[in-house]
């Protein structure tokens, strides 16, 4: 249960106001006198006796079950290293992927030799956070579902991870036109999902670019990102030509949709 304490912005080195007997959580440390001191800039929150500070900015901190998007940075022995924008690279074990043939069996030496065929260096993929190490920093990924895997026919947009909240569906479709995957690490994949056509038609490409521009704008204006919000922003900017979409004046229009407190 979250108990709100004083919602004042705290800075590194500030003592977080809290009742005695509280314990320091993330974003805080205990100083020599025993006071709980913030170590980031953000708003304090309290969970039972645990005092935490939610940082306004910062890199992605993984949570089990999160959908993320990453880029393969290393192909190793029995595993891939994936850059997901966290403080450390995540690991994807050979045993935690779905084989393209769909069989369920123990991975052999043969599979190790074919690792580059599944995911090669610089490939983009969607995955789920399977577990975190004891230290809480090293992340293990898995793609054991048909919806995860290599990404194609689309465009990557990187926004602040704080703007992508947890939602019911991280894979969704906008206006029956463009598909989106929202990675909780702030990486968003905008793509065209049609297996029948080999090439993405021009009109779809323009739609993909348009949605990408809107996401960039929302990132600049600090608007929480969700399918409904994108729809709202889309309607407000529908009269603007694609070329002028990233101008300062467009930013003014969407600023009041929802500011992050």
């Amino acid at each position: 249960m979250e108990i709100e304490i004083e919602r004042n912005l705290v800075m590194p080195g500030d003592v977080v106001p809290c009742p005695t007997g509280s314990m320091p959580g993330y974003g805080t440390y205990q100083n020599e006198v025993g006071e709980i001191v913030s170590n980031v800039m953000g708003y304090p929150a309290m969970y039972n006796r645990l005092v935490c500070v939610n940082s306004l900015r910062g890199c992605y901190i993984g949570e089990t079950g999160n959908v993320v998007i990453g880029r393969i940075s290393q192909v190793g022995n029995k595993r891939w290293k994936v850059d997901i924008g966290a403080s450390q690279e995540a690991a994807l074990q050979l045993s935690s992927i779905d084989l393209p043939t769909g069989e369920h069996r123990i991975r052999s030496e043969e599979d190790q030799l074919h690792m580059r065929e599944y995911f090669n260096h610089n490939d983009l993929l969607s995955a789920e956070v399977q577990s975190k190490s004891q230290e809480g920093k090293a992340i293990n990924l898995q793609t054991r579902s048909s919806k995860f895997g290599k990404l194609k026919n689309g465009m990557l947009v990187v926004v602040s991870p704080n703007l992508v909240a947890r939602m019911r569906q991280h894979f969704c479709q906008l206006n029956n036109e463009v598909d989106i995957i929202f990675g909780r690490n702030g990486w968003i994949w905008v793509y065209y999902n049609n297996t029948n056509e080999l090439e993405v038609p021009l009109i779809r490409r323009q739609q993909i670019v348009r949605i990408s521009c809107l996401l960039k704008l929302m990132n600049k204006a600090l608007v929480m990102i969700s399918p409904e919000k994108i729809q709202q922003v889309f309607e407000r900017t529908s009269d603007i030509e694609l070329e002028d979409l990233l101008a300062e004046s467009t930013l003014e229009r969407i600023k009041d949709i929802d500011a992050v407190e």
């Binding site: 800075m11 590194p12 080195g13 974003g27 440390y29 001191v37 170590n39 980031v40 800039m41 940082s55 306004l56 900015r57 910062g58 890199c59």
Partner: peptide, 8 residues
């Protein structure tokens, strides 16, 4: 601080 790096 802007990067959100924990500082004493």
């Amino acid at each position: 601080i802007h990067a959100g790096v924990p500082l004493k």
